[in-house]
Design a protein around this nucleic acid. Sequence first.
DNA 1: AAAATAATTTAGTTTTGTCTAAATTATTTT
DNA 2: AAAATAATTTAGACAAAACTAAATTATTTT
Lengths: 223, 223
Amino acid sequence: MVNYSISEENYIKAIYHLQGAEGMVTTNALSAELKTRPASVTDMLKKLKTKKLLNYERYKGFRLSADGKRVALGIIRRHRLWEFFLSEKLKFSWDEVHEVAEELEHVTSKKLIDKLDEYLGFPRVDPHGDPIPDQQGRIISPEQLPITDIPLNQPMEVSHVANQSAEMLDILKHHHIAIGTKLEVKKKFNFDNSLEIRAGKHTPFTLSESVARFIWVRKTSKS
Amino acid sequence: MVNYSISEENYIKAIYHLQGAEGMVTTNALSAELKTRPASVTDMLKKLKTKKLLNYERYKGFRLSADGKRVALGIIRRHRLWEFFLSEKLKFSWDEVHEVAEELEHVTSKKLIDKLDEYLGFPRVDPHGDPIPDQQGRIISPEQLPITDIPLNQPMEVSHVANQSAEMLDILKHHHIAIGTKLEVKKKFNFDNSLEIRAGKHTPFTLSESVARFIWVRKTSKS
DNA sequence: AAAATAATTTAGTTTTGTCTAAATTATTTT
DNA sequence: AAAATAATTTAGACAAAACTAAATTATTTT
Ligand SMILES: [Mn+2]
Ligand SMILES: [Mn+2]
Ligand SMILES: [Mn+2]
Ligand SMILES: [Mn+2]
């Protein structure tokens, strides 16, 4: 396990976020993302290429290598665990966590991060609803999660219902829930783990835990 | 509030630790502390002098200015709060906390640190028994603490007894405790907050909270 | 298929923080 | 009080990461 500089890490993470399933990342796109000049980006690309983190040929664009992706997922794991910590334990609001996590993510002690993960109860999503990679860099739930496991006030859409009984459908119909319905969890009641849900402009309604755990959602594509 | 680089912060903190109540710090001493060459130290001294953090005249040694001390106490506050967090919340052992805190201390968000302080319950000493500066950089308990407030297994010596009744003296005599006695707290019993104490090679004994809170100690000069 | 435009890279600087080797100043020994 | 030794500083170099300006390559327009 080699260590990378803060700059290298910021580049690697930014490339990971820019590259989708396929297609090349461009120098200008990365330059814009990192707010550095294209010429500086080119310099770093060469460096990351010699470190075998990048597949890069000049003028042709680039993508992370398998190694590069592994490194990126480690950084993202640290970032999102710290975001969860800041939000859950230190009561930071949503919009404040990212900036601080941007710095904390560069403290690379593996023991620190794994212990933090354990301390936080192995959370699966950060306060923005993004998945937290595990110790092996695997994203356990790349998209879908039961509605019982998502953060509050996060716009989501129903992606799957894990119980196809008539009784379940009856409830869903009653609340106008279907695959693709956009909703947010507004409140969790710890007494019985029931949830208050708001779907669009409808009046909010309550779901019991035994119903809610079958309703799977993912982040809406827009956010 | 200006920000300082990681290198600058490490220098400032090291100087703070090297300078006692009076007397000059030497280039070689700082060089040894930081494991950098004396020539590099001289370069940084000039820089810190122009930033008015240091009183420095060449060939004559140096000390932190009032500003420099203020900055140093901020860094030390961050370092020790993180050490406390690692020890208390993440269950790191004693000897592991310093290295990680050495990196975490450079994340300078004031809100992060003040919220962390609150989350930890405003601890007064770090896991090594060293005092944690408050938000204003004041070290509330520079030396002495009631034996009820110190970490386990930390060699301390009795510095003050805050109750001079005959009954108290009776107990102290019985356990051979006097000003200067060296002891360690081996265990805290949460049931009644009583403490198990070991003084030198004597058999360990137990003190009730109502006795213990009058016994003040400080770190032994050696450690 | 040129010409024009956009994207990217190269070349040459700058700043920060480190280093080695040599010069200078301070301290200790004789 | 010299001479020897130790501590410190200066001078010059280097690597990392950024920049600007100029050159090169790719893409789009005419
Ligand atoms: Mn970052
Ligand atoms: Mn996030
Ligand atoms: Mn440090
Ligand atoms: Mn400590």
